[in-house]
């Protein structure tokens, strides 16, 4: 199963320049997901972060993980009979799915263990730990070349 950017933008309300997720390569709907974010020198924030030393801002790494989380839990509402290989041909109310995406409500114990630079491919991993009412706590991790670069816990809300 591979979900590309076009399909991701059906599931998320985010748009340029803030759609920070390129692919979803593994998905257990409502439970866990693995995604890809490629970093290029062309990212607009490198102009200022920092001149002569381009580094991806940590908060944007968290945002990428939060967007993967949104894909993970919004697909949890899909019917079980869905054909994941041909999602585009399924009759899904994508606008309804995207409108359920809530907000990031908590960032806990996030460690940024290594600098992320242009040319790096981020492998993002999210696992749902606990849900209580409309809030879920998610274990998040990011890797570059198999090395752990981000590790921590976030909480996200879901709209009714």
């Amino acid at each position: 199963m591979k979900m590309e950017a076009q399909m991701i933008s059906n599931l998320l309300p985010h748009r340029y320049p803030f759609l920070l997720l390129d692919q979803v390569i593994k998905l257990d709907p409502g439970k866990s997901a693995v995604g890809i974010k490629n970093v290029t020198i062309n990212e607009p924030y490198f102009t200022g972060h920092f001149p002569g030393e381009p580094i991806v801002p940590g908060v944007l790494l968290v945002e990428s993980l939060a967007q993967l989380t949104a894909v993970m839990y919004s697909t949890g509402h899909f019917p079980e009979t869905i054909d994941w290989e041909h999602l585009e041909s399924e009759e899904i109310d994508f606008r309804g799915v995207a409108s359920k995406v809530g907000y990031l409500v908590n960032i806990k114990n996030i460690k940024f263990k290594q600098l992320v630079r242009p040319g790096d491919t981020l492998e993002l991993r999210v696992y749902k730990k606990t849900q209580f009412e409309n809030l879920s706590q998610i274990k998040v991790e990011a890797y570059v070349d198999g090395k752990n670069v981000v590790d921590g816990i976030i909480s996200v809300s879901e709209r009714p």
């Binding site: 908590n106 730990k129 606990t130 209580f132 009412e133 809030l135 879920s136 706590q137 909480s155």
Partner: peptide, 13 residues
């Protein structure tokens, strides 16, 4: 608040 309630649910579990 409700964000703390989630944290408590996690801790109690």
């Amino acid at each position: 608040d409700s964000i703390d309630a989630l944290e408590l649910a996690v801790g109690i579990f």
